[in-house]
């Protein structure tokens, strides 16, 4: 649905030049919620603004719904933008218009007639749960309500895609959850593809099907959450499921087991203890529900060296679990591969 290929963007020139996007390529599938995560200054906003060409890349291509936006004339681009809704961190609502007036803005721009504008804007305000606030001005709305208006405005023109740049960063945790639930509802009900930018892992965990990690203008990893979790050494997976730092005893083996899908509700650890008579200690664990599936990581300490524990580890891998040996486990890992 969204395909970004080899995009570069540099601000300024000479010694003061900043490379905000450095050979970024990204694939967002139809109907999914794709999260881009990264620290401040990583280039997240520049990336999302490059999707609808509010920020034109220096090179590379952006294709949305089969249409290569980077090749369009200014007039064609304006038409294409009407199919791409955008939601902003600071809402960017017109203070001089009511909630309904703000929602109607895009319809006015598209030349939709008055009666149809009113019908459509009220319908969409109802969808975002603000039917009773149609006549309120932004100054009279709470942050969460303002963002609902922002979402309604973005949706009024029936876009195929919703772009969201830190839409929940200015909101408290509870409001954030309600807005994310709304995004999820829209995604499911309207079949909208969503690309959202965030610096909060919680947002990714709560709604995203796929994610990418951006650092210094480069994509470090991307893919579906499920596949990222089962990728050894995935930084995203580690940040999604941070484990506590409990120091193991020297000479023992520390392993990390990643669960996903069906494996999460099997009594893996108990089985390990029973079958091999091992005194397994749990150093850390994180379990989450992602996209309706249980997923998580456990860090275990097994007595003895990795070589000594080769059999139980192979057994776990035989059950389809992803097992990583932390620290100097290269021997067993090599033996298995």
């Amino acid at each position: 649905m969204i395909s970004v290929k080899h995009v570069f963007k540099t601000f300024g020139s000479g010694a003061a030049a900043t490379t905000a996007l450095d050979d970024v390529s990204l694939e967002v599938a139809r109907g999914e919620i794709f999260g881009v995560i990264g620290q401040s200054g990583a280039g997240k906003s520049t990336l999302i603004r490059a999707i609808n060409l509010l920020e034109r890349p220096n090179s590379g291509t952006v294709t949305v719904d089969g249409e290569e936006l980077t090749r369009l004339s200014p007039d064609q681009l304006r038409l294409a933008r009407r199919k791409i809704g955008m939601v902003f961190q600071h809402f960017n609502l017109l203070a001089g218009r009511t909630a309904q007036g703000n929602v109607e803005l895009g319809l006015e721009i598209a030349g939709v007639g008055g009666a149809e504008r009113r019908r459509r804007s009220l319908e969409i305000l109802d969808l975002v749960g603000l039917a009773d606030k149609a006549g309120a001005y932004p100054a009279e709305l709470s942050g969460g309500q303002k963002q609902r208006v922002g979402i309604a405005r973005a949706l009024a023109g029936n876009p195929r895609i919703l772009l969201s740049d830190e839409a929940t960063s200015a909101l408290d945790p509870e409001t954030t959850r309600s807005i994310l639930d709304l995004v999820k509802t829209i995604n499911v009900q309207l079949g909208l593809t969503v690309l959202l930018i965030t610096h909060e892992m919680d947002v990714v965990k709560r709604v995203c099907d796929s994610a990418a990690m951006l650092e210094n203008g480069r994509i470090l990893e991307q893919g579906s959450i499920v596949s990222l979790i089962s990728t050894p050494g995935s930084r995203l997976a580690h940040e999604l499921f941070p484990l506590g730092e409990i120091a193991p005893h020297p000479g023992n083996t520390v392993i990390e087991i990643t669960f996903s899908g069906g494996s999460a509700d099997r009594p893996v650890i108990a089985q390990l203890a029973r079958s091999y008579g091992l005194d397994v200690s749990i150093l850390g664990a994180a379990v989450e529900t992602i996209g309706g599936n249980q997923a998580g990581r456990t860090r275990l300490e097994l007595p003895g060296t990795p070589l000594f524990n080769a059999a139980p580890i192979n057994d776990l891998r035989g059950q389809g679990l992803l097992v990583e040996i932390v620290g100097d486990g290269a021997v067993v890992q090599g033996a298995h591969a």
Binding site: N52, L54, R78, L79, A80, R81, R82, I84, G85, M86, F88, H90, N92, L93, L94, L105, G106, E108, I109, A110, R153, A154, G157, L163
Partner: peptide, 18 residues
């Protein structure tokens, strides 16, 4: 006028005169 408002209108496909 907040440049974000101009950006929001641009994202909706507004012309300069709009």
């Amino acid at each position: 006028v907040d440049s974000g408002l101009v950006e929001a209108a641009e994202s909706l496909g507004a012309t300069r005169w709009q």
